[in-house]
Amino acid sequence: MRILETASRLFYERGIRAVGVEAIAEEAGVTKKTLYDRFGSKDDLILAYLRARDGLWRSTLVKYVNESDGPPEKKLLATFGALHCWMRERNPRGCAFVNAHVELPADHPGQEIAREQKAWMLAYMEDLAAEAGAESPDTLAAQLLILHEGACIANSMRSVDDAARRAEQMAEILIGHALAR
């Protein structure tokens, strides 16, 4: 759908607050009435954007991990390969959910979508850590999620070259330690 694709691009590139429905409608080649008929409000469009972005990240990550070869601990490392590709192709401004969390008011329903996305990611990492045989899958998953988040920030701020690969190197050490116990 042109409206959602346009809104998603503009929200991510310029910021949710900075983009009005007029700009989205104009760039999508529709009237504001059409936009409101389809989505109801800017807030509903924001929610659709966040849900679509979440679905795209989840499917990309799971596919990348499932296509990785080797023992289960390699699947944990594959999450960083997926992150590297994602950041190169779709994520120059950092994590869309962290960005939304910063931009949206505390009571905005988009905050819940952002939290759910991070909770899913943590649970997914914990499942992979358990499958790999980590003694404390929850601890390892939390450590790896922090590395993921840090790599996204370092990449978007251009403060560390090749942030995802460097995070992957640190993850390899953490995984080795967690599995050696």
Results as ranks from 00 to 15, higher is better:
T139D: 13
N91L: 08
E27K: 14
M157T: 14
A141F: 12
T6R: 05
Y124I: 14
W57S: 11
S136E: 14
T6L: 07
D138N: 07
V30M: 01
T79K: 00
G70P: 06
S156M: 09
A164V: 07
K32C: 04
L104W: 02
T60M: 10
W120V: 15
C95E: 06
E26C: 09
D37G: 01
C152N: 04
M121A: 13
L45D: 02
V30S: 00
E5W: 09
G110F: 01
L144C: 08
E112L: 12
K74N: 13
F80V: 14
H108P: 14
I46M: 03
G15Q: 08
I16R: 05
I16H: 04
E13M: 12
R90G: 06
T139Q: 15
G150F: 05
W120D: 08
S59N: 06
R58N: 08
L174Y: 09
I3R: 00
D44F: 02
E22A: 15
T139F: 13
E67V: 10
A18V: 04
L4A: 06
A142W: 05
W86M: 08
D127Q: 15
P137N: 11
H84Y: 07
L174E: 06
G70T: 08
S59Y: 02
E149G: 12
E5F: 09
G20L: 12
E89A: 06
R9T: 15
P72L: 07
E131H: 10
G15V: 03
K42W: 05
D54K: 15
M170D: 11
R93T: 04
R58P: 06
E73C: 10
C152V: 06
E27L: 15
G70K: 06
E26M: 09
R181A: 14
L144F: 05
W86S: 07
E149F: 12
R115L: 15
A78P: 02
F80N: 04
S68M: 10
A163I: 13
D44G: 14
D44W: 05
S68D: 10
A119G: 07
E103P: 08
K75I: 15
A178T: 09
D107I: 01
P137H: 09
L4G: 02
Y49A: 04
I46C: 00
A7C: 07
M125G: 12
L47Y: 00
F80I: 13
K75P: 07
R93D: 07
L174P: 03
P105V: 04
I175W: 00
A163K: 02
S156F: 12
S156R: 03
E67R: 04
F80W: 09
A7L: 02
L35P: 00
L104I: 05
R14P: 03
E149A: 14
